[in-house]
Amino acid sequence: MSTTFDVYVPGRSWLHRVDARVKIAYVALITILLLIWFNLPLFVLLLVLTHIALLASGIPWRRLSTLWRALLPFLILVAVLWPVFAHEGTTQLVHLGPLRITGEGVIGGLATAMRFAAISFSFIIWLATTDQRALVRSFVRLGMPYKLGMSLTIGLRFIPTFAALFQSVSEAQQSRALALEGRGLQRARAMIPILIASLVTTLRMSEQLGWTLEARAFGAPVRRTTLYDLAMRPRDWLLLAVLLALFIVLLLLTFQAGFGQSLLRPW
């Protein structure tokens, strides 16, 4: 079944094989840098590099364009509203009563939109190349309680099931002549039979799932072993070390030499 919530694309590229924890570290570090920098060319450059990495890992362009379409309204909103409220700079473009728009404001808006896009696609590098099992396993290895990790796995696993259930309940109620035509409140009211039956069935499913888990000794007081464990390979450690070194260098450059601090120039 096709699902829209999961951005993971199966594959065997080198990014897919990097330990999930290293990818989490990358996302954390790059997000920090993106938040302390404020430089349009740097953001665009990072976006381009991110896209090259994603495409090289076998993430189809179609998937990336879907994500862009989802992000676009938000990015446009930021780019348009930013210059309305940010008045710094001397190059005045528009001055109509209380409305004052500066060139710096416009570029700042673009930079902020690109910053959000760059952060989003950095997360995509992580999520598109890490399957859910490795994802949750990495959380558990980083200290999340196992039961919580299991709940997270089950929750993610059941999203398509719930979508199918909702569809099936909707069909069942429409077969009983429930009309789903109309808009707004009328349509919301027509959804009630579907929502209640879905909810009751979901609760019933959760109860049964709990029983079947316990029947298979979930939560037994013994030390757990795992079939699919994560292991940091030498190259994962190396990558982590390179990432950390690069981060520290960039951080020093940023605070000592003002790297990424001015809107358009790199220094």
Partner: peptide, 23 residues
């Protein structure tokens, strides 16, 4: 024709009764 319109002529009992019970 819509499903609810066709329901005048064709009734359908689903496999899982819980998919319709809500009252």
């Amino acid at each position: 024709r819509s499903i609810s319109e066709l329901a005048h002529t064709v009734g359908y009992v689903f496999q899982n009764p819980d998919h319709q019970i809500f009252l």
